[in-house]
Write a protein that binds this DNA or RNA. Structure first.
Lengths: 102, 102
DNA sequence: TAACTGTATGTGTTAATGCTCATATGTGTG
DNA sequence: CACACATATGAGCATTAACACATACAGTTA
């Protein structure tokens, strides 16, 4: 037996999160949001993606609670509500980097 | 600007990993391998998946270097070559659990 | 209110991927 | 060698998900 066992539900929940992070454009949006709030228009120009596509990905992230929208006038700013996610991403990035050298 | 910036390549590499982890059955195989080496037949009976399907997922994991095959007689044992990955999964699992309470 | 900017959503198309069936390959044993 | 068991692979099918287009909605300003 392994030390950490994973129930079916836990695995399913994990995979749901990973599915969100698995799309390059979506992940790019998420990673480069950092801890700042940015209007959609900024994200569009930063990524070079179409408005529709950015909106599409933001919706997925929003419905999963990974980003939070905030209206300011006619703009909608998006923020990461949780720093911990970024730290997980950072650790994973480092892991990949180390692994390549082996 | 965010503290940690992610290049296009880094994001792409990250997303490639997440894509592998995004499939529930594949993730289930990976999580419950733990740090032990197990023959494919064990994985088949543990997951209840078809032989073909298990082989299919193991191939994906193997080609990404997330598991390592090892022949022992007529059996092929699969192992995780790296503990760190399990720890990342564990942390992610905990993060999800905490988040739900908020 | 009309006109403009910023953002969201519904629909359809296309590409990717998980799964199964049939079959091949590999390994031990009589 | 023949046979049985363990695992891998190729082809085809079915589902899903990313994207674009057109359009709707929300807020600001004239």
């Amino acid at each position: 037996m392994s030390i950490n066992t994973y129930s079916y539900d836990e695995v399913k929940e994990l995979s749901r999160l990973f599915k969100l992070l698995a799309e390059p454009n979506r992940l790019h949006i998420l990673c480069n949001l950092g801890m700042e709030c940015r209007p959609v228009s900024d994200i569009i120009s930063a990524t070079g993606l179409s408005q529709t596509n950015v909106s599409f990905h933001l919706r997925a992230l929003r419905e999963a609670g990974l980003v939070r929208p905030e209206r300011r006038g006619s703009f909608v700013y998006y923020c990461l509500p949780d720093v911990k996610l970024l730290s997980l991403l950072e650790q994973t990035k480092e892991w990949i980097k180390l692994r390549r050298k082996t």
